[in-house]
């Protein structure tokens, strides 16, 4: 399969991009930063082609469906959306260094998918034979990706804030000078969540609409549903934090990190540790 070769190239590109971003932090050379972004975008284009190819390959195998049906495909798609949201923020706000904290998430996903997960193209079980699958998965994962970016930015925020507290202004040069000011990081964090929150909301709604269409119940407190609601509550708390004295800054950054931890649990933990309707590739009806 050609697509799996291209996925390997993608993984290498994200790895190269991460290394270059680290070099950018160390060297503070602007063109190194541009190279980091460019390599990430090249990887993104190759990955887009690979996903398209895999889609086509599934039709060649006679089981045609969008490549979003099992854990491997969803992890690959997740990596893709992370770079997509990163590109959006990179192009719009031009803080290159964010890449050093965001591209690793995409790399982690691709590495895990390529090394640890079976990449066979499987036919769809009856429960997944619906267009709602596409709407639901795409909106959820775009939301998750925005939260991944927000988490990376929040980690930067906490590092920077800690440094500013501890060190005097003079020594705050060096590495930390590469980081955008905390005020900007706080704003970027908020912006990423402003993208992610409506997408997660849409993801939950399309999931509910699908469940209602397929099973007659839009909400059944299935663990996956409940965890998506938990994630939603955490980010809703984040959105209100900025209107409440004492909850801005560090606490908001922590809420964003906790939110992403809950997101990852919702995505993977629920399938690994809890049972329900969403077990990837299980042969439930």
């Amino acid at each position: 399969m050609t697509s799996s070769l291209l996925f390997n190239v993608t993984t290498l590109a994200y790895m190269a991009s991460m290394v270059v971003f680290f070099a950018f932090i160390a060297s503070k050379n602007k063109s190194v930063g541009v190279a980091g972004s460019m390599i990430a975008y090249a990887g993104f284009i190759i990955q887009t082609v690979a996903i398209g190819l895999r889609w086509k390959e599934s039709y060649d195998l006679g089981v045609g469906h969008a490549p979003l049906s099992n854990l491997y495909e969803s992890v690959v798609f997740f990596s893709w959306t992370i770079i997509l949201i990163f590109a959006f923020i990179d192009i719009k706000y031009k803080y290159r260094v964010v890449g050093a904290f965001v591209v690793p998430f995409a790399l982690l996903g691709m590495t895990w998918a390529q090394l640890g997960l079976g990449n066979g193209i499987e036919p769809l079980v009856p429960a997944l034979q619906s267009n709602w699958l596409l709407y639901h998965v795409v909106t959820c994962f775009l939301g998750y990706a925005a939260f991944a970016v927000a988490c990376g930015i929040s980690i930067m925020y906490l590092i920077k804030a800690k440094f500013e507290e501890g060190a005097s202004e003079a020594s705050a040069g060096g590495l930390m000078a590469m980081f955008p000011p905390t005020r900007v990081l706080d704003d970027l964090n908020y912006r990423a969540i402003m993208i992610g929150f409506p997408l997660l909301t849409l993801g939950i709604i399309t999931g509910a609409a699908w469940a209602n269409y397929a099973w007659g119940t839009y909400w059944s407190w299935d663990p996956k549903e409940t965890w998506s609601l938990i994630v939603w509550f955490v980010y809703a708390a984040f959105l209100h934090a900025r209107f409440t004295r004492g909850w801005v800054g560090k606490r908001a950054a922590w809420l964003s990190i906790i939110g992403f931890a809950a997101t990852i649990f919702c995505y993977l933990g629920v399938n690994l540790f809890l049972s329900g309707l969403h077990s990837y590739g299980s042969s439930k009806m």
Binding site: L229, F233, A237, H240
Partner: peptide, 24 residues
């Protein structure tokens, strides 16, 4: 108060976990 809102949202998030661990 918005402090109440944040407390409620966090309480809802935390308590909701129970039902995903204990069978319903």
């Amino acid at each position: 108060s918005l402090k109440l809102t944040i407390s409620l949202l966090i309480s809802l998030a935390l308590t909701s976990i129970i039902g995903t661990i204990i069978p319903q």
